[in-house]
Amino acid sequence: MEQIRRIRVYAWEFPVRFSHWINFLCVLTFAVTGLYIGNPYAHAHESHQWIMGWMRTLHFIAGYVFLMSFIIRTYWAFMGNRYASWKALFPFTSEQRRDLANALRFYTFTSKKPPYAIGHNAAAGLVYMGVVVLFAFQIVSGFAMYSLSSQSIIASVVGGWFLSVMELSTIRLFHHITMYLIFAFVLVHIYIAWWLDTVEKNGLIDGIFSGSKFVTEKELE
């Protein structure tokens, strides 16, 4: 039986991994506190409790952290390696388009060839671009609502202007709906990562912790 050599390739640089896990923590915080802010599921029995106060404080702190993570990752999309590049998000080249078709065929069971990729595959790139848009909308709409009660310049620069673009109640509604879109993304993201890791056997999930993937020589070409 032919033996396959696997080579360790450093794909995800530190800023990418850092931003990924900060985002993970932020989205978790946003979900717990945001769901409470939208629909308070626990009630205080004493007036000195400060449940909503804490929830909003955490939500806003996470908002600032998330904004910084977004900026770092955007910066790295221009400064980082080819796997972190913004160019990897769009199927610009014919090779990327072929990857995209192959990945979509694999996901829909019309092909048995997994979408081997050292970074992320072309289909994932497009989805991540959509997620960037969702994240950007959450940041802008979130800071727009935050600017109602905050005197912070960051809040008014990042979100304050948005109040004249969209009505406040509509902003609130879309901020809420976009949360569910992000939940849906998280489910699909984890599912596909787990699935691809089991079929590609390249340490895909480990990659977002260590930065490295183990690819065959054939894939490297």
């Binding site: 939208g38 629909n39 509604l173 809420h176 709906i177 949360m179 569910y180 879109l181 939940f183 849906a184 489910l187 699909v188 599912y191």
Partner: peptide
């Protein structure tokens, strides 16, 4: 309401998976 739509969306995604 937004919640019904949102929960429906999340449930549909999970069901799809």
């Amino acid at each position: 309401t937004a919640d019904k739509v949102g929960v429906g969306l999340a449930a549909a995604t999970a069901a799809g998976l």
